[in-house]
């Protein structure tokens, strides 16, 4: 019934992960950095579920639930930090946040 194999799913996850990595490396807006981190976490989740499906065990899905909880906590704290940064600096450019380098 199926004709796709495990490597194909892992390749798709790798492509999504690298797209998120490119987003983190090239954008300067903090919101886009957080979005790209979400893309990378989602790609890792796809790889986990694919690995779980290969051995027909629920462990991969359990790890995806862990990733989901971590992503939710990370987004809430990250957005609160971005809110404070926007209130104090009136910008979302990561290059302006260099006070610790002085």
């Amino acid at each position: 019934m199926t004709s796709f194999n495990t490597n194909t799913v892992l390749i798709v996850a790798a492509i999504l992960f690298v797209l998120g990595l490119i987003g983190v490396l090239t954008r300067r807006n903090i919101i886009f950095l957080l979005l790209s981190a979400e893309i990378m976490l989602n790609a890792a989740g796809i790889a986990f579920v694919a690995a779980g499906a290969k051995w027909q065990q629920p462990d991969g899905q359990v790890m995806f639930l862990m990733i989901l909880a971590m992503a939710a906590a990370e987004v809430s704290v990250g957005l609160a930090l971005v809110l404070q940064i926007f209130h104090q600096h009136k910008t979302l450019d990561v290059d302006n946040l260099n006070e610790l380098s002085d």
Binding site: M1, T2, S3, F4, N5, T6, N7, V9, L10, I11, A14, A50, G52, A53, K54, Q56, Q57, P58, D59, Q61, V62, L65
Partner: peptide, 26 residues
């Protein structure tokens, strides 16, 4: 991708792992 294509492609068995199994494991 080259590394992933090195190993022998094994077809993925699609058996549905439903919420019951996940919950029992979780």
């Amino acid at each position: 991708i080259v590394l992933l294509l090195q190993e022998k492609p094994t077809p993925l068995p699609v058996t549905v792992v439903d919420a019951r199994k996940v919950a029992l494991s979780l």
